[in-house]
Write a protein that binds this DNA or RNA. Structure first.
Length: 535
RNA sequence: GGGUCGAUAGCUCAGUCGGUAGAGCAACGGACUCUUAAUCCGUGGGUCACAGGUUCGAUCCCUGUUCGGCCUACCA
């Protein structure tokens, strides 16, 4: 195996050469160009960040007052000196502020904005008034001469720490007047285009770090920035967790590497354990483990983690995806639908701020979930259908699923395709099962859990027969699970919710890759490298 | 897997009805130093994805390859 050169990994050009030269000159001025730390001030109580400084009451008040004054001024007119002086006095009374961040623009002139990834604060370096450079030696020696020299050597995207006082500029922006500058880290490659962001979707997904930088630098954006997408994702997940915990659920972790891939109909990833010399499967669902816990006495359990399915990749499929799965003793499918609806309503409200979200031109209303039997759904969208037990799902997939834009629980599934769910008391051929569809995507799947060990055994045997018949997605018999059920499991309902798809809906993203930080992509190839290696 | 569109400067893109290429930004040099995406003046930068073919001549036409987008089929 050949080890690629650094220059092959980090492409060198006139842009990187310029940055490298700046770095060498900075090294002469400050010594260590990759210092180990920068201690920020703590005026706001905790360590000050750019975002927190901008939320100081005095800063907010100064901003508001300046905005009001500017509104009364004519185009190009400067705010009166007495207003500025008064605000500057208040801002200066805060004392010395030390903050750090990345340059959001090339350092033209003496103004530049720093970002902490979220907010931007303008900083001002006064050439005439002068400012000191802090060396990155053990004592952080103050060099009063070379502040401006160092300033000219920093590039768009570099990290600096600055110390100084806050003030308002002639245009009314609260800024930091730099008295001391400390160089913290260099960006050796050019920053993403601040107008267009990163246009190449491959780079956006493969180099998510660059995509995230772009979203903090970009001047104009349509829709959510990448950062906002993942902040929304975090909000959804935390609100779901809180909701479950507020309702008595306990979070558990069950095996990801399992001796049998079961609990769902899907092809697994296979791996090998050397010491035990056995094949293991990345789990396709945690379902059977969670129900073992219900047997063991955990009446309400949930697990929020990844499942792995060795299947195709599409706008709504990633080989690993995040599923929230939970079980509740003594509940049936109807109770679970009620609970799911309430939980999703609260989560959407918290993450999106409202129950009606706009998705690809449609308005999706999470305030209203319809319940529709599969047979009725087919007759609604394909009245000509001649439904039999065997063709029902096909009719559904082809004619109904794409039309289910608003949140819809499809209920009354054929028992034959639901080997882990209980039959309906009213109709033994129907499973007490639902799937939730939104915008043509399956978002959740739940049912009244089958808890009769003998019937479960028979259903597994039936699945194994289908497997023999060539259906390699049919479930495999899990002997220990049958044994677990024989200890007695209370009546229970369970559900799995596809978190990635839910996040797609809340962030108006068409592709699942846009809501997963590091989605699976083909291995990267360096075309010019491969050439040299042929033959 | 099938269809379809694409690959031109570090980035975003234009262009050549076939005569080896341009803009804006970025970089570099200088001027400016209370500016809000790009201040002003100047400079450098391209094997036009790769390999063949047609042609006096190909970045452009043809064929193939690689990589990628979009649509489509199967799985949540």
């Amino acid at each position: 195996m050949t080890i690629p050169e650094f220059e092959e990994i980090v492409e060198q050009n006139d842009q990187t050469e310029a940055r490298r030269e700046h770095l060498e000159k900075l090294r002469e001025l400050v010594g260590n160009v990759y210092p180990n730390k920068f201690v920020r001030s703590s005026i706001g109580g905790a360590e000050d960040t750019i975002s927190s400084v901008l939320k100081f009451a005095v800063v907010v008040a100064a901003g508001d007052e300046m905005a009001a004054v500017k509104a009364s001024l004519k185009e190009g007119e400067r705010p009166p000196a007495e207003v500025k002086d008064k605000l500057n006095e208040q801002l200066k009374a805060l004392g010395t502020v030390r903050i750090a961040g990345r340059l959001t623009t090339p350092p033209r002139g003496n103004f530049v904005h720093l970002t902490d990834g979220i907010a931007k604060l303008q900083v001002y370096c006064d050439k005439k008034g002068g400012f000191a450079l802090i060396k990155n030696d053990a004592e952080n020696t103050v060099d009063p001469e070379n502040g401006w020299t160092a300033w000219k050597l920093i590039d768009h995207g570099d990290f600096v720490g600055v110390e100084g006082y806050l003030f308002v500029t002639n245009t009314g922006e609260v800024s930091l007047h730099v008295e001391r500058l400390q160089f913290l880290a260099k960006a050796m490659v050019p920053m993403p285009d601040k107008m267009h962001g990163i246009a190449d979707p491959e780079i956006r997904q493969r180099q998510r770090y660059a995509d995230l930088i772009a979203s903090s630098l970009q001047v104009e954006t349509d829709g959510m920035t990448t950062r906002e997408v993942f902040e929304t994702r975090a909000k959804v997940i935390s609100s779901l967790r809180r909701y479950l915990e507020d309702h008595g659920y306990i979070e558990v972790e069950t095996p990801m590497l399992t001796p049998k891939a079961t609990g769902a109909a899907a092809k697994p990833f296979v791996t090998h354990h050397n010491a035990l010399d056995i094949d293991l499967y990345a789990r396709i669902a945690p379902e059977l483990y969670l129900k073992r816990l219900v047997v063991g006495g955990f009446e309400k359990v949930y697990e929020l983690n990844r499942n792995f399915r060795n299947e195709g990749i599409s706008y709504k499929h990633n080989p690993e995806f995040t599923m929230l799965e939970f079980y509740c003793a003594y509940m049936d499918v109807n109770g679970m639908m009620d609970f799911c609806e309430r939980m999703m309503r609260e989560s959407v409200q918290k993450a999106a701020g409202e129950l009606k979200v706009s998705y690809e031109g449609n308005e999706i209303d999470f305030g209203n979930f319809e319940r529709l039997a599969m047979r009725d759904a087919i007759l609604r969208y394909a009245p000509q259908a001649e439904i039999t037990d065997s063709n029902m799902v096909e009719w559904f997939d082809n004619h109904v699923e794409p039309n289910l834009t608003q949140p819809t629980f499809i209920i009354d599934y054929p028992k034959s395709i639901s080997p882990l769910s209980k039959a309906s008391p009213a109709n033994p051929q129907i499973a007490e099962r639902f799937e939730l569809f939104i915008n043509g995507m399956e978002v959740a799947n739940g049912f009244s859990e089958l808890n009769d060990p003998k019937e479960q055994y028979d259903r597994f045997v039936d699945q194994m027969a289908q497997r023999e018949g060539g259906d390699d997605e049919a479930m495999v018999l899990d002997e220990d699970y049958v044994r677990a059920l024989s200890y007695g499991m209370p009546p229970a309902a369970g559900i799995g919710i596809g978190i990635d798809r839910l996040v797609m809906l809340l962030t108006n993203k068409h592709s699942i890759r846009d809501v997963i930080l590091f989605p699976h992509l083909r291995p990267e190839r360096r075309a010019d490298k491969d050439e040299g290696e042929q033959e």
